[in-house]
Design a protein around this nucleic acid. Sequence first.
DNA 1: CGAAAACTTGATTCCGTTCAACACATGTGG
DNA 2: CCACATGTGTTGAACGGAATCAAGTTTTCG
Lengths: 187, 187
Amino acid sequence: MRHKIVAGGLRQILSIHMKGEMVDLQNSLLGMADHSVQMLTSGKVAMIPRADVERIAFARPSVGRAMWINTLVDASIFREWIANVGRRDAQTRIAHLLCEFSLRLKVSGLGERSNYELPMTQDQLADATGLTAVHVNRTLKTLESGGLIGRRTPRFIEIGDWRKLADAGDFNSAYLHLHESDPAVAA
Amino acid sequence: MRHKIVAGGLRQILSIHMKGEMVDLQNSLLGMADHSVQMLTSGKVAMIPRADVERIAFARPSVGRAMWINTLVDASIFREWIANVGRRDAQTRIAHLLCEFSLRLKVSGLGERSNYELPMTQDQLADATGLTAVHVNRTLKTLESGGLIGRRTPRFIEIGDWRKLADAGDFNSAYLHLHESDPAVAA
DNA sequence: CGAAAACTTGATTCCGTTCAACACATGTGG
DNA sequence: CCACATGTGTTGAACGGAATCAAGTTTTCG
């Protein structure tokens, strides 16, 4: 995940990344990092020297184009998150986030659309949605009692009626540009 | 400005652009637009066909690199806005926004750092900060009576003590990457 | 098994919203 | 040049969604 700390020590999580994604083009191509990147789960990280990234980007236009598109998709997700924390209420925000994870985990092969393990604490969900952990807890309960999600354990999300959750979360997957970023999905 | 409409018709302004900036790389390079772009003031817009942009990006690596960096700086500003609407209170949010405008207008030659015309209504400021117009109004008043800003007219901002406003707005200009995006400033 | 982390729940508070009215500037057509 | 409509800004009162504070409970993991 990416995050930033604001005055007072509050944290805002800016985005979540899945296994296999190029995570640090955002920071490494600019001279100075403006935020932090951390692992939510254990895993392997591959380092590619910045100079190599830049060289291949222009030596192989198709690779360069793919990396550029990748950073643009990241930007699109940032924009959706601005709208999410800026103009949606707590329940809509969280439903939206759960829908985004659902699709992205599926695309990454880490879960099913209707049913996935979410490796985030409620504290982290709070920092991703601009809420408090307490309110995240209550909101998850509300979603659950409303039949929009099920939770076998606190970190396991089940989505019975995907369309219903998407409506509750004002979710439209267009901003993920899945057909741009993942050739396998486009096929 | 860029904006998005969420369910219920609420608008979230995602970013503001200044004269001379390449505004639509974000939308045009991806297959489908995920948000809208509108003018806040009257002005001229130059259209560059998408194919030409892609061609020159790879034919002239220095141009391509500049455009890529440009989209990365936009993304950095999006990230700061997520933190702004997600984790800052109303006064800090607005002070932060005013600081960002101050620097960017200065760089674009549209105003002074301590003193500029802000061509936005309080409604638009509200949609940029995730607040209501009423609360923006009250917050501007508070900033004014606290001596942090002056307003000759509703749309003209004066910053007496820049450092004081930047502190109130938890503002650090690093995320603007001014030295990356504008060679004139880097000099 | 035991301690720390994460989750849950209730009571209370508060920042920002909502609703409502009014002030003021702008500009447009008669 | 005035009458009037419209958009924008200002202010007050009441409300409400989420925060805060506080106390448990459950899970995780060394």
